[in-house]
Structure formats: C-alpha cells, structure tokens
Write a protein that binds this DNA or RNA. Structure first.
Lengths: 114, 114
DNA sequence: CCCGGTGTTCGATGAATATCTTACAGTCCC
DNA sequence: GGGACTGTAAGATATTCATCGAACACCGGG
C-alpha cells in the first residue's frame, strides 16, 4: 500500500468533544488548573500541529500530562492527531471561542493585565 | 444614640478582595463550582443589596453556604454588607467585568446558548 | 526482529476542598 | 433580658482530583 505522507496509524484514536456540547462548568473546570493554563498558553504560542504532548515545559510526569490533555480534549479545547509515534496538538481557538466568546482570550492574556 | 436607618453593627466586617488583584486562576476556580454558579446567577437576577445569604435556593447547609460566599468574596465577585441580623449581597458586575471582560457574561448566559 | 522513544492505562497515594454538625456571636423584637 | 433568627468559626468526614510509578501498546529505525 502507498504509505501516507504522515503515517496515520491504526491506533486508538483520541476521543474528542465538540466545543458546542461543552457546558460552562466543564469549560471553567478545565481551565481552573495551573498546569492546563500553561499548556493552553504554550499551545497558543505555537503553530498548529507542531507540538507533541511531550514537548511542553511542565513540571509533572507524563502520566499526569496525559490526564491533563484528556481533560482539555473533553472540554473541546484541544484537538489531537497521531503523527507517527507522537501525538500532535492543536488549540481549537475558533471553535471554542464561538462557544465561549472571550474566555480563551482571558486565559491567554498575561495575568497582570488590567 | 440616634439609631441609623439600617443599623450598621460593629461586627466583624467581611473581608473583601479587589477584583483588580484577582488572578485568572482564582477567578476561574471560584466559578468552577455548580453551587457558586447558581449563587452568581441568582444574584444577577436580583436587585443589589436585596438578597441575604440565606435567601438562596441551594441544596447545601448554611455552613457550606457561608464558605461559598467567602470564596466568591475572595475572587472579587461579591460584595457583602451587614444589614441588621442579615448579610446582604451585591454582584460586583462592573468591577469584575473590568478585570475579566466577558467572563461574567458567559456564566450568566443560559447554559445551552450557542 | 529487537530497541529506544512516545503516550496511555491502571492502581495507589496524597492533597485540596466541599460538606456536615455543633457551638458561638451578633441583631432585632417582644 | 430572653428568645428567635442569621451568619460565622471550628473540627470531623468524605469526596474529588492531581500526581506518581509501573506496566503496556504503538511507532519508527537499525
């Protein structure tokens, strides 16, 4: 078979949640965590599909990191795609902003920003 | 002594936090709770200084309720004033909105509102 | 085919926190 | 002053959740 450009494995695909189906409580809970805020911020500062899960400068082990990405997926904040052995990420900016206008902007704004 | 219109007792005044000094994480954590969301919503639907703490239709005891109001005060979301034996509340809409534009609107919006 | 690299899952642990019960401190009204 | 009412404080309990360690699955390359 013709090998695809970026091999799409037949692995357990990550479960995604449509931002349109996310409740306010779920969205706020997902963002009410320092590690996840950092992930979102770092992700926002990078081009889409360029950051693998392990490429983030966080202070937790990879098990916890995997959990955090699961929460972010469940809140419709992050989309993931398998690219060879690694899983690359994308911040669902427009979609999430359509569901919760302004929320992402607040998180991405530098914290001391009156 | 001349009794004041609404007697302001010499009781331990509630500790308030200026919304300008509240971090994003604190604000999101305060709002990431179903009981507190309900309190904020109910408060937004009432005139200022008209709702005492005990007048909310929540499913927790008054001790937990007092704790939730403490969290809301600490996030700059609610202002309290003693009015006789009861403590009346006000949602700090403008001040909080100046610090976190749009956040309160998201919480007050009916949950399925895309 | 073996191996290093990448993530996920599972179970357990620990910390944060939401809750209750009880006790206490004010305030108002009789 | 006594008593009903309102809210807070303190201590105990329970639940949620973030974290870790180890085991497993998958991919790509020698």
């Amino acid at each position: 078979m013709a090998s695809q450009a970026t091999g799409s494995g037949h692995r357990a695909a990550p479960v995604h949640t449509d931002p349109a189906e996310v409740s306010v409580l779920t969205a706020l809970s997902a963002l009410a965590d320092p590690v996840r805020i950092q992930l979102v911020r770092e992700l926002a500062g990078s081009a889409e599909w360029t950051r693998s899960c392990g490429s983030f400068d966080v202070s937790v082990g990879k098990a916890a990191l995997s959990h955090h990405f699961s929460v972010l997926r469940g809140a419709g904040l992050v989309e993931q795609r398998d690219q060879g052995p690694r899983r690359v990420n994308r911040l669902r900016r427009e979609e999430f902003d359509a569901r919760f206008p302004g929320l992402l902007d607040l998180v991405l704004r530098p914290d001391g920003s009156p």
